[in-house]
Amino acid sequence: MADKVIMLACAAGMSTSMLVQRMQDAAKAAGKDYKIFAKSTADIDSELASSEKPDVLLLGPQVQYMKNEVKKKTDEAGIPMDVINMMDYGMMKGDMVLATAEAMM
């Protein structure tokens, strides 16, 4: 089982999949055992209710309009969340997004 679970959420869960790979590469290079995955924002409720709920949730910049709604849910679940930095997302800087997630946990 992974030490930490990091969830990324975007409109369909597809545009973040390349970023997930870059984050996984950065975590592996640092010797960290993290489960990092992307899902659609429609899956947030079920992921927060799962037995292996995320330690942190990051929203893709394209769905930042949902931040307040999602923040209420993550606050209730005791999970930190924020929107991924648009420059880091656009340039697929997995190491920077990973560092952001780690700082939040």
Rank of each mutant, 00 (worst) to 15 (best):
Q24P: 00
M18H: 04
M23C: 07
E102L: 08
M87Y: 15
K93H: 10
V63K: 08
M91T: 15
A12I: 02
V5C: 03
D55L: 07
D88F: 12
E76G: 14
Y89T: 12
K93W: 02
K28T: 10
Y34Q: 14
S15I: 05
V56T: 10
T74Y: 07
S50Y: 01
I6V: 15
S17D: 01
G13F: 07
I79D: 09
A77K: 13
I84L: 14
F37V: 11
D43H: 04
S17N: 05
A9L: 06
V20C: 08
L58W: 06
M91P: 08
M87W: 08
S46P: 03
S50G: 09
D43F: 04
D3Q: 15
D82C: 09
D55P: 02
K28S: 09
P80T: 10
G90F: 10
K32G: 02
V83R: 08
G60T: 12
L19S: 04
M96A: 15
K93I: 11
I79R: 03
D3L: 14
K53Y: 01
A103T: 10
L57Q: 11
K28E: 10
I44N: 07
L57P: 05
E47M: 14
I6T: 11
A101D: 07
M92C: 10
K73C: 07
K72G: 01
M86Y: 04
L58K: 06
T16P: 00
D82T: 14
K32T: 03
V97D: 02
T100N: 04
G78H: 08
L98R: 03
N85E: 01
D82P: 04
D25K: 09
A11L: 05
M92H: 02
S51M: 10
K53G: 00
V97R: 04
M81T: 15
E102N: 04
V5I: 13
L8I: 04
S17Y: 01
S50D: 05
E102Q: 08
E52C: 09
K93A: 14
A99D: 05
D88V: 13
A12N: 05
M7N: 09
A11N: 04
D33R: 10
D45E: 12
V20A: 10
K72W: 02
E102A: 06
D88G: 10
I6D: 13
D88L: 11
A26R: 06
Q24W: 02
D88E: 15
A11Q: 05
E102K: 03
A11F: 00
N68W: 03
K53R: 14
M104Q: 09
K67S: 07
D45A: 13
A77H: 07
Q24H: 02
A30T: 01
T16D: 01
K72Y: 01
K71T: 11
L57D: 09
A38R: 08
M86N: 07
D95F: 03
V83I: 12
N68C: 05
G13T: 07
S46F: 05
E69W: 03
K28N: 07
I84R: 12
A42P: 00
I36Y: 00
E102I: 05
A2Y: 11
A49W: 00
S40H: 03
M14E: 01
D3I: 07
A27R: 04
M66F: 02
S17T: 13
K28V: 04
V83Y: 09
S50K: 04
S15T: 13
M14F: 05
A99Q: 02
